[in-house]
Design a protein around this nucleic acid. Sequence first.
DNA 1: CGTTTTTGACCCGCGC
DNA 2: GCGCGGGTCAAAAACG
Length: 547
Amino acid sequence: METKPERHHRHEEARDGEDDAVAMEHGALSLQRGGATLFGWRQDEEAGRRRRVEIREVDFFSRDSRARSHDDAGDGRDDVNIGLHLLTTTSPDEEMTAAAAKNQKIEASSAVEAELRRVVEDNRRLRGMMNELTRNYGAMYQQLLQVTQHHPHRQHPVDLMINRSSLAHTRLTTAASYNDDTSAQQLLRVEDEAASDGAGEASPSLSNGGNHNDGGDGKQRRTSSNVTAPPARENGGGERAELPAHKTRVSVRARSEAPMISDGCQWRKYGQKMAKGNPCPRAYYRCTMAVACPVRKQVQRCAEDKTILVTTYEGHHNHPLPPAAATMASTTSAAATMLLSGPATSRDGAAALLGHPAALFQFHHSSSIPYASTMATLSASAPFPTITLDLTQTPGGVVGSGGGLLLPHHGLGLHRPPSGIHPVAAPAMPLSPLATLLQQLPPTGSMSLAGLVARHEQQQSVMETVTAAIAANPNFTTALAAAISSVMAGAAHQAQPTPRAGNIGSAGEANGSAGGAAAGPTAAGAYGASGGSPRFATQSACTTSTT
DNA sequence: CGTTTTTGACCCGCGC
DNA sequence: GCGCGGGTCAAAAACG
């Protein structure tokens, strides 16, 4: 059943912020308590191993440790021998041997201490880097706000998207759900109009304000129409009357064994249906983060490949999104924006594929970003214009078997794979571009400072590449905004479990892999080189099925 | 006891 | 008009 994990996650949410230690263990970008765990579980694991070693030393040679501490403090006392003499009757030779052994232990302890000091220093440096990143983000955010305020009515859709994407309150289906025709241009126009009414910049968190489509519950379905249509039935008819005729949807295809991907929002299941041609039932969820939030989503497994979970979002949130959801929204909207703002090609019959993903993500490839393999398509052949983000494609060289992207446990709030499933084979879920960058960093084999520094340098190198990409392709700014938003969300809320992620995932927060908001259970420890662990719940293939 | 899930019934659009 | 399929409702059950 889905209920247990879901509720478990609710517990996690309730504990949000109460357990920094756990957060640190799980946080991919945790900088709390002086223990930066910037590189995910491997570092955690390494740190844990060191802690274990340290504990063993302390427990077994506690006297030595204290004596050394005193020596270091300069009081010059040596109370070690006192204890030994009191407890043993040893010969002079034995005493010498014991003393030698003691000295060795003291030296070992000193080495450990020195290493710890180095690690602490490194953590301090990492904190500084993170603070700088935070400042940069703030500056960029302010600039975006200024741009938005100065050009409230002439904002380019892409800019708009950037603005919205970079905010923590980006709606989940940024490019979706406009009650307009199927034309992408119109869709963009509606976006622009939505911005001009003031809701866009004044309240980035609220997409409903100026949105044509909502105001309602999203229940009007494909009715032609309009507000004047009589209620279909007594109950709920009013809601339906406010709903749009046609909605654009955002569909995300990802590999997951969880019943539902965790996007940071709270969902309430209100229906389940057997769809024709698919043995797996389709589940219908409604956003419950705010009263009358019109956003709905459908979750269904792909008939051809049951490991692929297809999540379709529809509607705009009428409330601020939690960071985890904002992250997801940013990623989704970024891809959608790039899709919509790209050069037009044809595909899917009359459908418009506005911008070939491969081209759009070209710079991604140049940066070795696996996110590049994400396929985003816009189809107008469906009943609704639907933007599909296919995250099931295997990025070259990123993952081995299993296919699909390995997700970071960065703020996305994704599921971990069930314990026992090797991370390499873990299902893929959407991830933010920068999270992917971080994920791309090689695992830390040891906790050596050199390794950390090397990773930092590598990370900086990647960042430089990203910067170059921005200059090369304006569209990428959207992705960057999403990435920054993701990082910020992950850093600030990495200890925050995904709200009601249980819908989705098995809970538990067990051992720590870097998890960000997606901190979750167990299998994390086995998470390999990706440095991140998608959160997957233990679930059967047809996860949405409850029978 | 409040919230969420389950599930059968119902509504609606569409094609024939 | 009828049947089909998609989507939603709402009472009952389940859960914590």
